[in-house]
Design a binder for these strands. Structure first.
Lengths: 213, 213
DNA sequence: CATAAAGTTAAACGAACGTTTGAACAACGA
DNA sequence: TCGTTGTTCAAACGTTCGTTTAACTTTATG
């Protein structure tokens, strides 16, 4: 089937982009189909035509984001390099990805605890793969070296939350202090995260030695 | 006014508790007034009678949570002790608070990016106080000692996200691997966070030799 | 050109939404 | 006893929700 070019690329794409923007800003439930349709400049019925339902549209957004996030984890963590280098590369790639797909990130994280069984099971399937990678490539090697056991179901959320905090809280922090988001570049933010994770918040220039305040 | 004991403590309290539970599990917008009223075993009108509106109910939940969180920050961070001890005490208290008020935490964080001006401004007022404390008690002392500048609008979200990750992702991780939440106690989780923040994820063997599990 | 498929449209469906109303009820001091 | 005050209730308000239907136009194909 050559339906790649068959369908009008404008309508479906416009719906998707508009939905990502609206869901991130207003929330999924607070966004109405009519507002979405009019902002995307399509007829109301087109959403159900292309995506089956409002929930189907959400699932597609989640799938797009998760698959990209998972691909980064596979690429940067599955590697013969040492643990620290892989962690640094993963954080760099993931934070850049979060920045590029900021709205999708907000949707994916914020809609997390809501207990629609259909959506939750959908996310759990993705999260399961992510947890498996973190376990194989981070937790197990780390456990061998240091003897500590950090379960992947604990570490994966910690890493994701930490990397996402800049973008999740960004809009609120802008209200707290205008310009605070741009005051720290994404590159600086990445370095900050790597420094904290590898050496702690107190000692970023030294890996060993004395420690006072 | 003796309206403290005059009003029936059952109804308003039941509404509040039920709302916290429902908002955390289903989301604010997805929770209907009728479902809330029937689950709380009150008449539909009682919610508007006690809280003015659905949004007023949400505001009260947010206020309760934020004020407790802020009180902990004031108590544990504002102290002549050294930075590391204060940070450790703050994390311990905050994580315990998050655990006790898990549903309110989920509501407060998850409903964050939604751009209702009334709610956002309400949260910004609380966040502004939190950022100020973090700046005075963490960022400024830390900057003097190490020369690094970590803006409080960056650090406060990072700390909060990190401490909250266990509870925000808990329900999802339970779907990924049943029992994974209880596999790590809150006390272990706290120690893990303190260790990472003070010494990084890789080097926990120094400073305190007895780190097991 | 014919035919089917893909895309688009206006209109309507029933259900659920948050909120308001006005009367009833219980408890209290005057 | 009456009047006041805080609480509870059933019923209805008007609006908006997600979805569906059926007819129409456009596009691709043989």
């Amino acid at each position: 089937m050559n339906n790649k070019k068959l369908q009008n690329p404008n309508s479906k794409e416009r719906i998707l982009r508009t939905a990502i923007s609206l869901f991130a800003r207003k929330g999924f439930a607070e966004t109405g189909m009519r507002e979405l349709a009019s902002k995307a400049e399509v007829n109301l019925s087109m959403v159900n035509y292309f995506f089956g339902s409002k929930k189907g549209l959400l699932k597609e957004i989640l799938d797009d984001f998760f698959s990209g996030y998972l691909a980064i984890a596979r690429e940067e963590l599955t590697d013969p390099e040492d643990l620290q280098s892989r962690l640094e590369r993963f954080i760099t790639s993931a934070v850049n990805y979060f920045e590029a797909e900021r709205d999708s990130l907000i949707i994916t994280i914020s809609e997390l605890p809501h207990d629609d069984p259909e959506i939750v099971e959908h996310k759990a399937a993705w999260a399961r793969q992510m947890v498996e990678i973190v376990n194989q490539e981070l937790c197990l090697p780390h456990g061998e070296k240091t003897g500590q056991k950090i379960p992947p179901t604990c570490l994966a959320p910690m890493l994701t939350s930490l990397m996402a905090s800049r973008f999740l809280f960004g809009p609120l922090m802008e209200k707290v202090q205008a310009g605070s988001f741009k005051a720290v570049t994404t590159e600086d933010y990445t370095k900050m995260l790597v420094g904290i994770l590898l050496q702690g918040i107190t000692g970023t220039e030294k890996k060993s030695g004395e420690r006072n305040i």
